[in-house]
Amino acid sequence: MSAITSWRVRGGQLAVVLVLAALWELASRSGAVDPDVLPPLTKVAGIVWRLLHDGDFLADLRITAFECLVAFALVVPLGLLAGFVLGESQTLDRTLGGTLQLMMSVPKSVFLPVFVLMFGIGIAQKVIFAIVLAFFIVVPTGIAAVHSVPRGLVTAARAFGATRTQIYGRVYLPAMAPLIVGGVRLGLIFVVHGVVFAEMYGSTGGIGRSIVTWGEGFQMDYLLAAVMLVLVATVTLNETIQAVETHIRARRGAAS
């Protein structure tokens, strides 16, 4: 894509966002939609600003961010490593592959009550639930990453005298890089999803609990403000990681 068309696309995307924002504002102000259900965008934006200066809310935000960070830091290396081992060993893949498929297709949220009974409603439970949710998404990415390593490159490296360690470090790792970054991205999305969802189900703190409280109290302006904050945070992180992924692929001449 040339620079000019790229800017045209970006301009178009911005226009879509602006039109949607204007429609939201108009619909609410004109009374076409009940302003109690959908408060005007400008009002919600004002509340976002107020929340960012509210000590209680910031404390909740910190709890959520902390839970996400811990779960993310654990599940991504763990999931990728498990995927790597499964992807490398045909025997293990055959033995555990079926179970893994099963675990992937099970909706993890139905186990939330069990998690609460086992781990309470504190930080540990949010972290563990998020890890379980994200693990079964990251593992298949790890397996796919191993399978994406071209066998010919491994044979060639062996012919040039590469040791096993060198083959893993200098062929596998760089060859898997795009899919590893993809796994990191999926891990992040599902960790945030898991943490916020677990907070909404039962929690003593965190942004998920705030969202539920405001929802039950019919404070749509606060609820939407919190939703927008979560949205902006995850979209920004996601786009950043995606940019890394695109950059790696582009450098190898592969279509992103």
Binding site: P150, G152, L153, T155, A156, A159, P174, R252, G253, A254
Partner: peptide, 19 residues
């Protein structure tokens, strides 16, 4: 086993590291 100091190999595909 491979003996890279004595034997060089060129394969049917170039098999270059794309990065």
């Amino acid at each position: 086993a491979p003996h890279p100091d004595k034997i060089g190999i060129v394969f049917q595909e170039p098999l270059l590291l794309p990065w």
